[in-house]
């Protein structure tokens, strides 16, 4: 499928421990899908495997970004193919400013040796920072160093907005956010929604989905999707709790 993020029968492990078990999911471009599930069910593993993290081993399966197979590719190649991962715990990068970091990521997407329009870059960067209510002084701060949880997540969304991927995987972006930060981050994501982008929002809590309203909700358990539905599924899950998943859905 050319206009989708397609994950097909993915089996992956860390060390000897299988985590993703025949995982399949399709996110058509223009849609927002949410994956919910209890801790330890493989949600974060899914995001890291898609992004090409070297700690995970893929036994079998495939994933496609608009028809381009990405499993087995280097992480930077996957990113340039159009997949963005917003990290649950973004790393601190001492000595590298946000401005230089995002600039390097953009330069990597240009043809080799092509000139970089620094003026246009800063204009766009400042506009997006304003939208995220980030102080412009953050451009010269080192990436995530000394940031609060909310500042780190805003910085992730800033990168997302600047890099404009085809698909974005948001891994527990709501963790560690107060309501104000959650609203700002969600507005950033919502502003990017449209026919040219697909989103996979991974979360443990229904709360985020009040702000980023999904087209589809999937429930993950033991390394695969066990149940899918519309946005109301998130509310149902909130009401019934994850015991419902364990007792009823897991057996299905």
């Amino acid at each position: 499928m050319p206009d989708s993020l397609v994950i097909k029968n993915l089996n992956a492990s860390i060390g000897d421990r299988p985590i993703l078990k025949d995982f399949s999911l399709t996110v058509p471009k223009g849609e927002v899908h949410a994956i919910m599930g209890p801790n330890g069910t493989g949600k974060s593993t899914l995001s890291k495997v898609l992004a090409g993290h070297p700690d995970y081993t893929v036994q079998s399966g495939e994933a496609f970004v608009d028809g381009e197979q990405i499993i087995g590719l280097e992480p930077d190649v996957i990113a340039r193919a159009g997949l963005f991962l917003a990290f649950q715990y973004p790393s601190e990068i001492p000595g590298v400013t946000i401005a230089n970091f995002i600039r390097a990521a953009l330069v990597a997407r240009q043809a080799k040796g092509a000139p970089f329009d620094a003026k246009a870059y800063y204009a766009e960067l400042y506009a997006k920072m304003d939208a995220l209510k980030m102080d412009r002084k953050f451009t010269s701060r080192f990436v995530n160093e000394g940031f609060s949880g909310g500042e780190k997540k805003r910085c992730e969304i800033l990168q997302l907005m600047m890099l404009k991927p085809k698909y974005a995987v948001l891994d527990e972006t709501d963790s560690g956010l107060d309501i104000d930060a959650l609203r700002i981050v969600s507005e950033g994501v919502n502003a990017m929604r449209g026919p040219d982008a697909g989103f996979l929002v991974i979360t443990h809590y229904q709360r985020l989905l009040d702000y980023i309203v999904p087209d589809r909700v999937h429930i993950m358990w033991d390394g695969r999707i066990v149940h899918s539905g519309g946005k109301e599924l998130a509310l149902e899950l909130e009401e019934k709790g994850y015991d419902w998943v364990k007792k009823d859905l897991a057996k299905a």
Binding site: A51, G52, P75, D76, A79, R80, S91, I93, A108, L163
Partner: peptide
């Protein structure tokens, strides 16, 4: 990994 996940080559 964080840098490479942004598309920056090794």
């Amino acid at each position: 990994f964080y840098l490479r996940a942004r598309g920056i080559p090794l």
